[in-house]
Nucleic acid binder design. Structure first.
Lengths: 127, 127
DNA sequence: TTGACATGAAACCCAAAGGTTTCGTAAAAT
DNA sequence: ATTTTACGAAACCTTTGGGTTTCATGTCAA
């Protein structure tokens, strides 16, 4: 329910920008108001604000108004999605368990992330 | 070293696109020529080709020419970079020590006068 | 040799992304 | 009451991104 809210931006896209990546690291140390965050970057405060909004839309940060300031804090949950996606490739690094793992995965896990519409999945009729 | 080849695109950026994400999953099942890959997507073969190049520049795939066709195969190494980056946040869901850490962080942060952390320094001159 | 197949390169389009500046407004501070 | 401070919204600009179509080239098949 709460975690899987309709996110306008997906986490992959949100993390594509280095500044944004840096920001969530910054926020990993705690809540911070916009101006303070802005102090860490060579871009305008407004630009920082926009980045924060993208992060918020991806569910990676959450804001909270305190008087005239808006504090942002990290919301790490969406990163799990990334982790999960990544785990698909685990077989490449940690073999050992990979055989078993693959069997388990074969049992119906069908991540819907970047798979795109099912139409794309048509069997290859090509050569 | 091979792994750290000069990558024009970083892995985060490469994975930002859902089609590209899908592609490397496709290739996880084995080497494949462009036209075959192309058969899985509703876009032109040329577009697919471009995506493949982005992936290649990020080091995520490698190409190999066989006669008149070019086969692409997954090169999962760069994903480790992602994994490593992600591990920075392990403390959030991988509790134990994090509980302590959070208590420390949370110490006295309730009152709104808590302009604590020195990291919040200098407000940069607003535009 | 002639022709069909596989693929990359080029030129072009349009929408989205990242920035900036300017302005408005609400909450401190004085 | 007036001025600062903190911030978002809007309008605007320029670059990048994903897509397409057309063209050129190398390779396999007849």
């Amino acid at each position: 329910m709460p975690a899987s809210a309709a996110r306008k931006h997906d986490v992959f896209q949100a993390l594509a920008d280095p500044t944004r990546r840096s920001m969530i690291r910054l926020l990993a140390d705690g809540e911070m108001p916009v101006t303070a965050i802005s102090g860490h970057y060579p871009i305008s405060r407004t630009a920082v604000s926009k980045h924060l909004r993208v992060l918020a839309e991806a569910g990676l940060v959450k804001e909270r108004k305190i008087g005239r300031e808006t504090r942002y804090r990290l919301e790490p949950d969406p990163l799990l999605e990334l982790k999960r996606w990544l785990s698909y490739f685990d077989r490449y690094w940690d073999n050992k368990l990979s055989a078993l793992k693959r069997m388990v995965e074969a049992g119906g896990e069908d991540g819907e992330d970047g798979w795109g519409p099912a139409e794309w999945r048509k069997p290859k009729k090509d050569a």
